[in-house]
Design a protein around this nucleic acid. Structure first.
Length: 699
DNA sequence: CAGTGAGCGAGCTTCCGCTTGACTT
């Protein structure tokens, strides 16, 4: 009868906890924040201590209602929102929404185990107002920055634009990088590899030219190279030094949101959004059949922590001992240090049970789910394994005044490498690291099989990809696990950057906005801004600084800058984007214009010449009716569709993305349908109903 | 499911962070 209501943030958590607390407890989810500043108004009373006006978030009304009625029916209410700044604020809002007394009603746990939860229930505390205030400072600051800078951009550049503490710095990173690339001057240099033979062996091994008369050697032209090879053709190659070393290589820590997004991007080619969608499916759980029912396959997916619950560590150790043998289990469980500034409210992302090997659940998962689950499972299992031991040999080889170096390595004990290999820098793997050298002796003379000179050019820094952008944002502590993917979508949507061949390139608009913000608000668009804000928030959390003072100190100068910017900036002219396409009436190059339905191509001679043409995106598929190109377009309502380039002569059109494959039954061209379960090839012929599951490529 | 940009100048746009679904045309 005397029930206790416990409110958590996520429904999956509610379910789990309900399982091991008895009938005396009701567990309900809040689904994140319930109250916030209204979207349609500024809602911060700057004159009055920055007092924020909160309203119930649109769409969350029914949840509030349900929680109220559940609270009514309960004798006691406990607030078990996440143990971090945002969680504390959610608890505080709940306290007000549900009219709860200022008693010790707040509980927190870092692990969802019966023991941790029961312990937490025994130790409720009052809501920590300092934490709540830090959150309010963060929230109000973001509102001030976003809702003051954005309208400035509407007036000065283009309506609908936006700026903010996080998104603007992300754009800045991309713009800065592009400028570095443009300023980069490529330089030529040469390398020389000698392929050498040890007596009695028939396979040559490579050695790299390093030094000349003890000095680092830089070869910058073919002419220099030719002189050097001439001198080296007839030289004597003698081993002068051999160093043997044993190297231990430790596994990478288990995934956080950021590292999962990076690795899924590099290994599976998933965007941040797709990774989160599939991960959410794994987290929410799937019908596994058998006795298990619905089971969450992985722990919570929005986390900045690499911490692992001790039960999971012990389970992993048992598993490893059984499947791989004792030598693969490290003496002590591996604990990974968190990042500085990590809020540590959740564990690392890991399988809820290591015994659920990817292959055993493969048949219940879609292709995407299976691939992502395998990645998470392998990374976690490896993270609890013994280090790999690698024997490396480095040999110095003299050739007159020249010094070559050969390296070889042999894996002595694979350790975690049996399970997981981290993909650090794209696909470029140093293959030669894996090679072994023949046994060599100091003083031994080697035969020269071949000299291999190679021309290189220094490369500009790479453009950001989703992976490297997320990585950089995390390192700079800009944004949070729940916002990396949405932030990327925002800057794309605003037209600040475009994605080309998986790389981010700033648009003219992006550059203009960054220049404007750098000029007038250099502090805000600085990569250090968030870090400095976090320092202040820390002080608020410690009770050493009132939150309203932090805001006042920020707002005074900011207000000045705003006024000055308003006066000094005229209307910013955006250079016209000129396309390669010609006007069919007057042969001038068409320019990109903004219309009601988005971008389109128009003749620059408007209004004398009114020629227009849709701006179109070829998808590299031919039209089944006329063989022309299929292009992606948008309907009036904004929905994407695919049509033939030769419209209106050819009127082929499809909602789903056409492919080059024909249906084996009726010969109609197949289309791609993507649903929650992944992507399938489907026959658009309604009579036919042919469906092809996309094949697995993984072992 | 294939439009489109001046002019009037209303009413609108926008932040970050916490959570999940949803009108399938």
């Amino acid at each position: 009868m005397a029930k206790t209501l416990i409110i958590v943030e996520s429904p999956a958590k509610a379910k789990t906890i309900a399982k091991f607390l008895g009938r005396n407890y009701t567990i309900k989810p809040s689904m994140g924040h319930l109250r916030d500043l209204p979207r349609s108004q500024f809602a911060v009373d700057v004159e009055n201590g920055f007092e924020p006006r909160y309203i119930t978030i649109r769409g969350k009304g029914p949840i509030v209602k349900e929680l109220r009625s559940a609270a009514q029916k309960s004798q006691r209410v406990l607030l078990a929102t996440d143990p971090d700044r945002e969680g504390e604020a959610i608890a505080w809002h709940l306290q007000h929404l549900l009219n709860l007394p200022p008693d010790p009603i707040r509980i927190e746990f870092n692990e969802i185990t019966p023991k941790a939860v029961q312990e937490a229930i025994k130790n409720p505390r009052v809501i920590n107002q300092f934490y709540v205030d830090a959150q309010q400072a963060r929230r109000v600051l973001d509102r001030i920055v976003g809702y003051k800078l954005s309208p400035l951009l509407w007036r000065k550049v283009r309506k609908g634009l936006s700026a903010g503490r996080v998104q603007s710095v992300a754009v800045r990173l991309i713009v800065d990088r592009e400028q570095e690339i443009e300023a980069f001057e490529s330089e030529e240099y040469w390398s020389l590899t000698a392929w050498l033979l040890s007596e009695g062996e028939n396979k040559a091994f490579p050695a790299k030219l390093l030094k000349y008369q003890g000095q680092e050697l830089v070869i910058s032209s073919e002419a220099e190279m030719t002189k050097i090879t001439a001198a080296l053709e007839g030289a004597t190659y003698r081993v002068s030094d051999i160093k043997q070393r044993e190297r231990r290589k430790n596994p990478a820590p288990p995934f956080t949101t950021s590292t999962l997004q990076q690795e899924a991007y590099r290994k599976l080619n998933f965007t941040a959004r797709r990774t989160m969608q599939v991960a959410q499916q794994l987290y929410e759980g799937l019908e596994l059949g058998g006795s298990e029912g619905t089971v969450g396959l992985i722990t919570y997916i929005r986390t900045d922590s690499t911490r692992v619950a001790s039960v999971a560590q012990l389970e992993a150790r048992d598993y490893l001992a059984e499947r791989f043998g004792k030598e693969y289990v490290p003496e002590k469980p591996r604990q990974y240090k968190g990042r500085k500034g990590s809020q540590d409210a959740h564990e690392a992302i890991r399988p809820t049970s290591v015994w659920r090997e990817p292959l055993t659940v493969k048949n219940n998962l879609t292709r995407d789910q299976y691939r992502l689950y395998s990645l998470i499972w392998e990374r976690f299992v490896a993270s609890q394994m013994e280090a790999a031991v690698i024997d490396t040999v480095t040999a110095n080889i003299d050739a007159g005044p020249y010094l070559f170096r050969a390296t070889g390595s042999v894996i002595k004990f694979p350790g975690y490498l049996r399970v997981y290999q981290e993909n650090v820098n794209g696909e470029e793997k140093e293959q030669e690291q894996e090679q072994s050298l023949p046994s060599l002796k100091v003083g031994q003379v080697l035969g020269l099989a071949n000299l291999e000179p190679k021309q290189h050019f220094t490369q500009p820094p790479p453009r950001y990809t989703e992976a490297s952008l997320v990585k950089t944002m995390e390192e700079l502590a800009i944004g949070r696990p729940s916002t990396y993917a949405p932030t990327i979508e925002t800057i794309l949507q605003r037209g600040y950057v475009v994605r080309e061949q998986k790389q981010f390139i700033p648009t003219e608009l992006g550059r203009v906005v960054v220049v404007l913000l750098k000029q007038h608000f250099p502090d805000i668009i600085d990569v250090e801004f968030t870090a400095q804000m976090e320092e202040q928030l820390d002080l608020i959390e410690e009770g050493k600084l009132p939150w309203r003072k932090v805001l006042a100190d920020f707002y005074q100068p900011f207000q000045q800058l705003l006024e000055r910017a308003e006066k000094e900036i005229g209307t910013v002219e955006l250079p016209q984007e000129i396309s390669e396409e010609k006007c069919e009436n007057c042969n001038r190059n068409l320019v990109v214009k903004m219309g009601r339905y988005g971008k389109f191509l128009a003749c620059p001679g408007f209004p004398e010449c009114r020629f227009t043409k849709p701006l179109v995106d070829s998808i590299g598929v031919t039209c089944p009716q006329c063989g022309g190109n299929i292009v992606a377009r948008r309907s009036k309502k904004g929905r994407k569709f695919f049509g033939c380039q030769n419209y209106p002569e050819c009127n082929f059109v499809s909602w789903d993305k056409p492919t080059e494959q024909n249906c084996p039954h009726c010969g109609t061209r197949l289309v791609e349908k993507s649903s929650r379960q992944g992507t399938r090839l489907v026959c658009p012929n309604k009579e036919c109903k042919y469906v092809e599951q996309v094949k697995e490529t993984l072992p």
